[in-house]
Nucleic acid binder design. Structure first.
Lengths: 223, 223
DNA sequence: TTAATTTGGTTGCCAGGGCAACGGACATTC
DNA sequence: GAATGTCCGTTGCCCTGGCAACCAAATTAA
């Protein structure tokens, strides 16, 4: 069990030495998934949430006409099922699939709020609950930020809204931005056609609004 | 303080008689807002969350070119700032404005997780924390569901995705759906033009896919 | 009652962007 | 080296849907 990387936000403020008994007490397990294996299926109810320890996954939605839409990209440290586990009885709208061989730390949500039954051997129960809430809030914020982009009417305004937010996060006034996506990922996130995105990006570069090479973007002053 | 309506999810599982001391202990206050008054401004950091007791509010985004986009509609029992209060230091992306004279139960997020300092007079602290997490998760789920609609490529598929979800919630196999929106609200939620929505709805009615009068919709079998 | 306002359906216009197809730049493998 | 794959920019075609303008019905005010 000591394959838990340090600095996971879920364990922030918890002493490294307290982790083993805490993990044991909350019934944490490590699950492994092979490439293309399903972690959560659409329609399933979910009682565990997970932290991706290694590998990569994505959540995708199969809509009624069979189109496959990417909803989220999950990297190590990222979180799986944190929303669903916290609302009892809801069925998953998305399918979560491992994109590479992956390891997932899985914890029953019910054990997060539960009173400790191991006679006080584990410390950090409250901290863990607080961290869970914090992770959940962060996740909600991410969803909110994406909606912010999706609500924009044009490809251009979608891109600008997105870049401005990244610039904001990267530090005040910063304008050099390293995207977490390649072009295709960026297009999927903004829900636009990849070629339409390329077209608009070139246009914006030509007009001097932005500059970019690969996934490094530069946001010019007036944005 | 005894103007708290019963059945607020935030207080589920907490005895009515325990409420007063609990509310006192978490420093809950009731704030009143006049029509068009701002509850949270864009860019503000937020440390309190709120439950709307009466009135109505909406959160809206002023994008860079001044366009005003409605993000959420908040009705009594609904929740304000629950995400932001739980992530320290983030600035609000949206403006929350009262649409009518409103009353808001406001609670500092910091008091939710905090240890009680009133000598045990208040019961239900853990329950309150659990309820907060549950509300937050539900909010996140709502955001997720909206993204689900927004990701759909056409007006028609947006509408169907939305209606199918409502039908699902309304009970298994149910196909008679009472929308919480008028046409304009529906268009804003799905982020489409109102007239384009009307156009597509008529088309779908003509094709026998759906039927509707006012805000009552009927989803035919094959959907 | 009539006037005024809100709500929602209709229609013509036209541009933004989805789609498909292609090609060039790099990287990887044999 | 050739061969294969991936990533990304470009372009033409054409349809969806945004926009504006208008109207009918319903609702509210006067």
């Amino acid at each position: 069990m000591n394959i838990i990387p340090p600095n996971l936000p879920l364990f922030a403020g918890i002493l490294q030495e307290d982790l083993p008994s805490l993990l044991y007490c909350v019934r944490a397990t490590v699950e492994t998934y092979k490439k293309r294996q399903t972690i959560i299926s659409q329609g399933e109810t979910v009682s565990n949430f997970g932290i991706l320890l290694s590998g990569q996954a994505r959540s995708l939605k199969l809509d009624a006409d069979g189109r496959q839409v990417i909803v989220t990209l999950i990297r190590p440290g990222g979180v799986v099922g944190i929303i669903l586990a916290a609302v009892t009885g809801e069925r998953s709208l998305v399918e979560v699939v491992a994109e590479e061989d992956s390891r997932l730390l899985s914890i029953p949500f019910a054990r997060i709020g539960a009173v400790c039954d191991c006679g006080g051997a584990c410390r950090g129960r409250e901290q863990l609950a607080a961290n869970y809430t914090s992770l959940l809030a962060r996740k909600a914020l991410e969803l909110h930020e994406r909606i912010d982009c999706l609500l924009e009417p044009s490809v251009r305004s979608k891109v600008l809204t997105y870049l401005r937010r990244l610039a904001m996060e990267e530090g005040e006034g910063a304008s050099k931005i390293a995207l977490p996506f390649d072009r295709e990922g960026m297009a999927e996130y903004l829900n636009v056609d990849r070629s339409a995105l390329s077209r608009e990006l070139s246009r914006m570069k030509r007009e001097g609004l932005i500059d970019y090479r690969k996934n490094i973007f530069l946001l010019k002053a007036q944005c």
